[in-house]
Nucleic acid binder design. Structure first.
Length: 204
DNA sequence: CCGCCGATCTTT
DNA sequence: AAGATCGGCGGG
């Protein structure tokens, strides 16, 4: 990617830690699929050693969660509300059932393709805003279930271009009804692609 | 800007 | 029956 300078693919060991520890480290990294590139600006941690009733892996192994229970550095893709695909980066140890949900990215390259895939987006900062929207813009579906981000076997990879650090905000996860108090959502402050910015303070 | 609601279908 | 969502619509 010329526009973003040199970048490196991350090794397997990068993913082998608890989701709440990996999640903030994923911010500002690049997701690449063909010519389409986005910078991660919002994520959520699920599962791992801390009991997490909101995680798809909480009740044990099922057909759907095989990838999430697999080795770190792969993609766990699931179908949401009958119409959206959501993508997670599997982490922790093999067999643990931990992952980080990608909730929003800021567009870096391949904007034309993204606009075609996301006709409902009114502005470019909306192209990858929201977990269902970012997979649509990037062209990620069930065929990428289990994709290896380290070998890029299915054309998807995660890269680090050493972007300048940003202010990170942690808070409760979005759209869940269990374990609502765990502060496992991490996002970059003031980024227009973040799916649900903090509510404005009430007027005095 | 905010809240409500329907769409759509897999998983449990 | 619920769900790790989204976008259109109506109201303030």
């Amino acid at each position: 990617m010329r526009a973003t300078g040199r970048s490196k693919r991350l090794p397997r060991a990068f993913y082998a830690r608890q989701p709440e520890a990996l999640a903030p480290e994923l911010l500002n990294k690049l997701i690449v699929h063909g010519g389409r590139v986005g910078r991660i600006v919002e994520v959520e941690a699920y599962g791992g050693r801390v009991a997490d009733p909101a995680s798809h892996t909480f009740r044990g192994l099922t057909a759907r969660t095989t990838a999430m229970f697999g080795p770190p550095g792969h993609l766990y893709v699931y179908f949401s509300y009958g119409m959206h695909w959501c993508a997670n980066v599997v982490c922790g140890d093999d067999g643990e059932g931990a992952a980080v949900l990608l909730r929003a990215l800021s567009p870096v390259a391949g904007l034309e393709e993204m606009r075609t895939a996301r006709p409902a987006a009114r502005k470019d900062t909306d192209l990858l805003r929201g977990p269902g929207n970012l997979t649509r813009a990037l062209g990620i579906t069930k065929e990428h279930y289990g994709a290896d981000l380290v070998t890029a076997n299915l054309g998807i990879e995660l890269r680090d271009d050493s972007a300048a650090p940003s202010e990170i905000i942690a808070g409760p996860r979005v759209g869940i009804t269990k374990a609502v108090d765990l502060p496992w959502r991490f996002f970059i402050s003031n980024n227009p692609s973040v799916s649900r910015p903090p509510k404005a303070a009430p007027r005095p």
